[in-house]
């Protein structure tokens, strides 16, 4: 009987490549958060009004409408500085997870969906928005894992 050798394939990335991937993920999050934060801040009244229609947010709409862009800007600032980038990436991941959970709850709970999503991806449907967020969640996980090794 012959012996079976199991070949394990390892994708070895050099330290430099890992750094490039990590930095790219970080910059993508900075661009996303700053873009969406500006968009929300400039249409804060409309954004708050949309949030007010959400059964989960309701009367806290104005507070949440201000809190979201401020948190996004704060995370972007943390992501800018290399020494605290990893913390920023974890924060980004948690924020994206919160957004995605909210979107999924709204879509799958059968809640009445507010008509205008607003922000950078205002042309997207709620389902497309979920896929977009999942993409960024995946990027965040890749970034954190690459930085861990």
């Amino acid at each position: 009987m012959g012996t079976t050798s199991i070949k394990q394939i390892h994708f070895q990335l050099s330290t430099k490549n890992k750094e490039i991937i990590f930095d790219t993920v970080v910059y993508l999050f900075i661009v996303l958060f700053m873009y969406t934060a500006a968009s929300k801040l400039l249409t804060i009244k409309s954004f708050a009004s949309t949030l007010a229609k959400s059964p989960l947010i309701g009367s806290y709409s104005l507070l949440v409408a201000w809190a979201i862009p401020i948190i996004e800007i704060a995370i972007s600032l943390v992501l800018i500085f290399p020494t605290i980038r990893k913390t920023g990436l974890w924060a980004s991941l948690i924020l994206m997870l919160a957004f995605t959970t909210y979107l999924m709850y709204m879509v799958f709970s059968g809640s009445e969906l507010p008509c205008h999503c607003g922000g950078v991806i205002s042309k997207m449907t709620w389902q497309q928005h979920i896929w977009f967020n999942l993409g960024f969640l995946a990027l965040g996980i890749i970034g954190i894992n690459i930085n861990k090794k």
């Binding site: 661009v31 700053m34 500006a38 500085f81």
Partner: peptide, 27 residues
């Protein structure tokens, strides 16, 4: 890339994204 360049690039990205968003929203 050294840390100062990374910070500079980060600030540039953040500024451009914020500015572009503001520009398109106002427009």
């Amino acid at each position: 890339m050294n840390k100062i360049k990374k910070v500079a690039l980060g600030i540039l990205m953040a500024g451009l994204a914020f500015g572009f968003s503001a520009f398109t929203t106002v427009k």
